[in-house]
């Protein structure tokens, strides 16, 4: 079982389109949408939900107004300014529980909070584990961990070859949770200043956590000068570029039809995505290469 996670730093570079195409190309796999904040992979894969679970995030403070003596101690001590007029602002509360511990009349309870839902679904390409984090919820990293854990379990039980994870944008909590322990990170970038800048940061994140990263430059031909800059940077940082996907209007058309582009039409982009998947499958097979020799924390 090998797990590949698709990341980018910058949003909108084509992670989900590529993940959707991999879903159609890989033989024996489970799909996993780690972008629990704004999950879109399901739009391409038409899942039918088979299992559904509540996700319990952290705790939230709750003030019982009947008991509260309005001493205001909680308001003064809360570092997150989450208590106003003897009421807790659920959005600001981080669930540290200090208020509940110090309340002189024990008017505050910590209650667990259903922060989202997660699902195991059937798609025509195989099982999909996905989630929906509630608006303004904390603990997206924990939900990502839960989704990945279930995908691993499905892969183990079904003796599947691949776990294909569509990751979130950024470099913070949910990204770290999607990345750590994966066998390979595919970083999708685009030849824009923002894309290049964000690629540099996400490469550093992969290195920090000791996960081998390879790069795909999407729409490489929309600005070939920037593409060359990215190539040069990747070269210097010893990060392999495994694919250059040309700009192709068919990709947007496929997206409008909500179909993975490799299923939509034979075009330059879909041909290159097929190559990309073959490269990835090859890299995942070659154990020595997917090791982490020379990388920080490269102990597994």
């Amino acid at each position: 079982m090998k797990e590949i996670v698709i990341l980018s730093g910058k949003g909108g570079t084509g992670k989900t389109s590529i993940a959707g195409s991999f879903a159609a190309l890989a033989s024996s796999k489970v799909l996993c949408d780690c972008d629990v904040d704004a999950a879109d992979l399901n739009l391409l894969l038409e899942p039918s939900v088979e299992e559904e679970y509540d996700f319990t995030g952290g705790l939230l403070a709750f003030i019982n107004a009947d008991i509260c003596c309005q001493c205001n101690l909680c308001t003064q001590l809360c570092r997150f300014s989450a208590i106003k007029d003897f009421k807790v602002d659920d959005i600001a509360c981080e669930g540290c529980g200090l208020c509940a511990r110090i309340c002189p009349v024990k008017a505050i309870d910590m209650k667990s909070n259903v922060a989202g839902r997660w699902f195991v679904s059937k798609t025509k390409y195989g099982p999909l584990v996905h989630a929906r984090l509630g608006i303004a919820q904390d603990n997206s990293g924990k939900l990502v961990a839960q989704v990945r854990q279930r995908a691993k379990q499905i892969a183990a039980e079904g003796d599947l070859d691949y776990i294909i994870s569509d990751g979130p944008p950024g470099t913070g909590c949910p990204v770290i949770s999607s990345l750590t322990g994966a066998d390979l990170a595919l970083l999708v970038t685009e030849p824009t200043l923002s894309g290049a800048h964000d690629l540099e940061r996400i490469i550093q994140v992969c290195r920090h956590f000791g996960v081998k990263a390879v790069v795909c430059i999407n729409k490489f031909d929309i600005n070939e000068l920037n593409t060359r800059k990215i190539e040069q940077f990747c070269n210097e940082s010893e990060t392999r570029i495994v694919s250059r996907i040309p700009y192709d209007a068919a990709v947007t058309e496929a997206l409008m039809q909500a179909v993975p582009v490799v299923e939509y039409t034979e075009c330059n982009a879909s041909e290159e995505i097929i190559n990309l998947w073959q490269n990835i499958a090859f890299l995942l097979k070659d154990k020595n290469d997917v090791g982490n020799a020379g990388l920080k924390n490269g102990s597994f």
């Binding site: 949003g11 904040d37 959005i91 984090l133 303004a136 919820q137 944008p169």
Partner: peptide, 14 residues
């Protein structure tokens, strides 16, 4: 703001 709808976005927009 950053993409998404979780805490950092809410903090930025609020």
């Amino acid at each position: 703001a950053s993409p998404g709808t979780s805490c950092p976005v809410i903090e930025a927009v609020n």
